[in-house]
Computed example of a mutant assay.
Amino acid sequence: MVQRWILNSHLDKHAPLSTYEGRPYIQLSRLDLWTLKARGWVNSNETVIKQHNLDAFQNGPISVYDGFGPNFGDDNRFFDKVEASKRNWWFIPMCWKGHWWLYAFNVAGKQVLVLDSLKCEEATNERRKLDAYAGRLLEDMSKVAIQTYEHTLNGPTIAYASVPVQPNGWDCGIFIIKFMELWTEDCRLHEWDDVYKVFCC
């Protein structure tokens, strides 16, 4: 009965159902609970990379973009800045238009490696823009975790890792899980070709 009330599309989908105590910016809305629908997506109020934000994004020495809210990093369930400051690499799974890939960010080296199991041709302008936007947000996250972190002038360097290509159109999520599971900092990129054997076993 409660589920039917939550999923009722005739009611206000943005109505707040509950608020995290002491942190009013973290709300659970009816729309969030709509993810209980069959084939529903999990929503996050911290989602920043949306189509209208990407369209407005301008990269360069003076970049223009919508970033994280002022309270980003206050809740360590979403981003533990203390733990993050201890790590050399951060893994950021990304889902865009139904496809998942992985950003591996070298914090000290200010380099982003893109691990995409469907990336086998020249990046489109939209994809380059999306990667640059993600790079800017990663640097913002770094500044939250490490106060001495200095932003780069044009964003971190971005390179595509040579990774196995998925044999179908639906295994991208499994591939990024395996990329994270099998990651080692000293792994040479050409060795990613051997990872495919793991998927086939």
Rank of each mutant, 00 (worst) to 15 (best):
170 W>R: 13
80 D>V: 01
161 A>G: 12
68 F>N: 01
36 L>F: 13
172 C>T: 09
29 S>F: 03
101 W>L: 10
187 C>L: 15
151 H>A: 08
108 A>D: 11
17 L>E: 09
41 W>P: 02
54 L>H: 07
79 F>I: 01
144 V>I: 12
39 R>Q: 12
51 Q>K: 14
94 M>H: 01
160 Y>P: 00
173 G>I: 09
46 E>R: 07
121 E>H: 13
57 F>K: 03
124 T>C: 11
18 S>I: 03
169 G>E: 13
40 G>V: 04
76 N>C: 07
145 A>N: 05
97 K>V: 05
62 I>Y: 05
180 M>V: 11
69 G>K: 11
123 A>V: 03
92 I>S: 06
43 N>T: 11
38 A>P: 03
150 E>H: 07
19 T>M: 14
84 A>S: 12
98 G>L: 12
166 Q>E: 10
46 E>V: 00
105 F>G: 04
127 R>Y: 14
137 L>Y: 05
78 F>N: 08
63 S>N: 06
96 W>P: 00
67 G>K: 04
148 T>L: 05
85 S>D: 09
19 T>F: 03
64 V>I: 08
28 L>Q: 10
95 C>T: 04
148 T>K: 11
179 F>S: 09
114 V>W: 03
98 G>W: 09
139 E>W: 02
47 T>A: 11
138 L>N: 01
120 C>R: 15
92 I>K: 05
93 P>A: 12
65 Y>T: 00
57 F>D: 02
20 Y>T: 08
80 D>P: 01
198 V>N: 12
